[in-house]
């Protein structure tokens, strides 16, 4: 298996704050890899290191087999970054942005113009192509931002929280684009705080907690790690009262129901018990459970973590 991204023991501190505490990563070429974590877990720092923006304090990393510290220029030839803040020039039009990026990516003027027209059509920006970006909506900016990363189609694409702040529709559209890029063979490394996003897009997911990878695997592998089904208790209006993860055994299930009984919640009128498969939220909270702050920051549903 060829690795597109490989990192060993990455450490980074800003002042006294340790952001990365020995991060290991192995991202197979051609896969979509999601780095999942609450705010402040070190996601953006990881991206900044892997895209040559910041040097790690220690550790090594390589992108497409090129060492980040020894051959940064070679790494830069293989990557594109769409960061958290929309990296577009607001004074220029979408077309001017794309032509500029094309020229900076080594295209001749004519080729840069052709490529710009192509990407404008592909990202549905024709109506606004010659208007200043300052007038664009958030969704249009993100599309342009992604288009700028595709002026030259590089093997590894870094997306830092690509859909944060977007409405549902724009998010779905962006997911479709990312999925299609992955199908065309681009390795995609994305960070997200949305579990659904990781579930939908990623071949492999790593949970980043306190500067380390706390768990890694496919969505199914991670879900099976938390064990069995989750018992949910809802009132007559369907509002979730409580949910308890189980270890999947009959004994565990009974223990959970007994627990709910003891809490005197199950006796009220119209209260219903359902059993469901664990979600990534459960995984995430189970993994980061010993740190309440992390659970609070991650916009996950309220639940009782037991481990």
């Amino acid at each position: 298996m060829q690795l597109a991204i490989e990192a060993r023991g990455l450490r980074k501190a800003f002042g006294r704050t340790e952001v990365l505490a020995g991060l290991d990563l192995a991202v197979p070429a051609g896969s979509v890899f999601a780095l999942l974590g609450p705010n402040g877990a070190g996601k953006t720092t990881t991206i900044n290191i892997l895209t040559t923006l910041v040097a790690p304090d220690s550790g090594t990393a390589a992108v497409m087999g090129r060492d980040l510290l020894r051959e940064p220029a070679a790494v830069q030839q293989c990557i594109a970054l769409t960061g958290q803040a929309a990296a577009v020039d607001e004074v220029l039009t979408a077309r001017e942005n794309l032509v500029m990026m094309g020229r900076l990516s080594g295209l001749a003027r004519r080729d840069a113009r052709l490529r710009a027209t192509e990407l404008i059509a592909r990202f549905d920006l024709e109506q606004a192509a010659d208007r200043r970006v300052a007038t664009y909506s958030g969704g249009m900016r993100r599309r342009l931002d992604l288009a700028l990363s595709l002026v030259v189609q590089v093997p590894v694409l870094f997306l830092d929280e690509p859909t944060t702040g977007l409405d549902t529709r724009s998010r779905q559209e962006l997911w479709a684009v990312i999925r299609s890029l992955a199908d065309a063979g681009t390795t995609i490394f994305l960070t997200t705080q949305y579990l659904e996003e990781a579930d939908r897009l990623a071949d492999r997911i790593a949970v980043l907690d306190r500067g380390r990878i706390a768990a890694e695997g496919t969505a199914d592998e991670l879900k099976s790690r938390v064990g069995g089904d989750v018992v949910e208790l809802r009132d007559a209006d369907g509002v979730l009262l409580r949910e308890l993860p189980t270890d999947g055994s009959v004994h565990g299930l009974r223990a959970a129901i007994d627990e709910l009984d003891r809490a005197a919640l199950a006796g009220a009128d119209g209260v219903q018990v359902t059993i469901r498969r664990p979600s990534l939220d459960d995984v995430f909270l189970a993994i980061t459970a010993d740190r309440p702050a992390a659970a609070a920051e991650a916009s996950a549903p309220e639940l009782i973590a037991t481990n």
Binding site: Q77, S105, Q153, P155, G185
Partner: peptide, 12 residues
């Protein structure tokens, strides 16, 4: 868009 003609290349 996915089926676009662009082959994976390197940024010169």
């Amino acid at each position: 868009a996915a089926a676009g003609p662009d082959a994976v290349a390197h940024r010169p």
